[in-house]
């Protein structure tokens, strides 16, 4: 019986039929999705923090309005994704709990500090650019609620990357200091952005199974290469450089070769030792604790109102 269900399940996947929450699925598929979707959601939520830092210091009203809209989008993306994960049987509170206790991971990139205004541009261009490459194939992922959430996310994400590039473009045409600030931000965000695609394929134990289940459509290394090829061209428009002396066009492979990634740094940041891990988690936990009275008051008010209503009905 079990084998039969599993064959039916894999047949659906092979025929590009989406899996919906009520359908039978292998326990491991469910667990993999819960892990991936909730980590994705956490990343959107924690991702608001480095950028939120700069809302009050945006250099113009235009930039401020854009940044607020972008940060609000990230909150929305987190909410779409939490809802998708909830259809798999985990509760919102459980997921928050996993984030706040450090049990759940989120994208390592958000543990780096935003030191200057140019970082807001670099995040939009590089970090959101990398995220988009990851997210576009996820619109076709095999689990229906996840795919639907990603369609919505992708629609909104494109403005994030474009506003970032435009911000850097403006700086790149500015004063010497502004140009230097632009280059400095690119230098600091380039390598962490490359790490966003995750460990290389031979060190990524979940990739093969996730490919068979069509949760993932491309491997980490495939997407990373695509990103390098894209950014290596776009950086020329900015008249800036990427901080990699090994970066050069390879006419044979028709791709850019690039230098070795510092995986030691990646694992350090993932396991809690990045420059801002503690600060980010503390901010999250404080926001959650500070909001407790609001959540309780709203529940109490709703209960009171419902009680009144049933009294009238009686």
């Amino acid at each position: 019986m079990e084998k039969n269900l599993e064959t039916i399940f894999q047949d659906k996947i092979d025929n590009e039929i989406k899996i919906e929450p009520k359908d039978w699925m292998p326990e491991k598929y469910r667990q993999t999705l819960i892990r991936q979707i909730s980590q994705h959601a956490h990343s959107e939520i924690v991702g608001m923090l480095p950028e939120g830092n700069w809302i009050t210091r945006a250099p113009s009203l235009r930039r401020k309005a854009i940044l607020i809209a972008k940060v609000q989008d990230e909150a929305g993306h987190g909410l779409y994704l939490y809802s998708a994960a909830e259809t798999l049987g985990i509760s919102r509170d459980e997921m928050y709990d996993q984030l706040h206790t450090g049990k759940a991971k989120y994208s390592s990139i958000f543990n780096y500090p935003t030191l200057t205004w140019a970082d807001i541009g670099a995040i939009g261009w590089l970090v959101d650019g990398a995220a988009i490459l990851n997210q576009i194939p996820l619109c076709r992922t095999s689990f229906g609620p996840y795919a639907r959430a990603m369609v919505r996310v992708c629609k909104e994400e494109s403005f994030h990357q474009r506003q970032g590039f435009e911000l850097l473009l403006t700086l790149s045409k500015g004063t010497e200091q502004q140009k230097a600030m632009c280059q400095d931000a690119i230098n600091r965000w380039w390598w962490p952005s490359l790490m966003m695609f995750g460990p290389s394929d031979d060190a990524s134990p979940n990739t093969a199974q996730s490919m068979q289940w069509k949760i993932k459509r491309f491997t980490n290394d495939e997407l990373r290469q695509k990103f390098v090829d894209m950014i290596a061209e776009q950086v020329k428009v900015l008249n800036m450089t990427l901080p990699d002396k090994d970066l050069k066009w390879n006419a044979e492979t028709k791709h850019y070769d690039f230098g070795k990634i510092n995986w030691e740094e990646f694992w350090q940041v993932i396991s809690g030792n990045g420059p801002c891990n503690k600060q980010r988690l503390d901010t999250r936990k404080k926001a959650w604790a500070d909001g407790a009275w609001v959540r309780e008051a709203a529940s109490a008010y709703a209960e009171k109102k419902a009680a009144k209503q049933s009294m009238h009905a009686a």
């Binding site: 929450p21 359908d23 699925m25 798999l88 049987g89 985990i90 509760s91 509170d93 959540r295």
Partner: peptide, 15 residues
């Protein structure tokens, strides 16, 4: 075959 069963609601009591 349901996937939405969870055995405890403790974690969601304040939700």
């Amino acid at each position: 075959n349901g996937t939405a069963d969870i055995s405890s609601s403790n974690k969601t009591k304040n939700e």
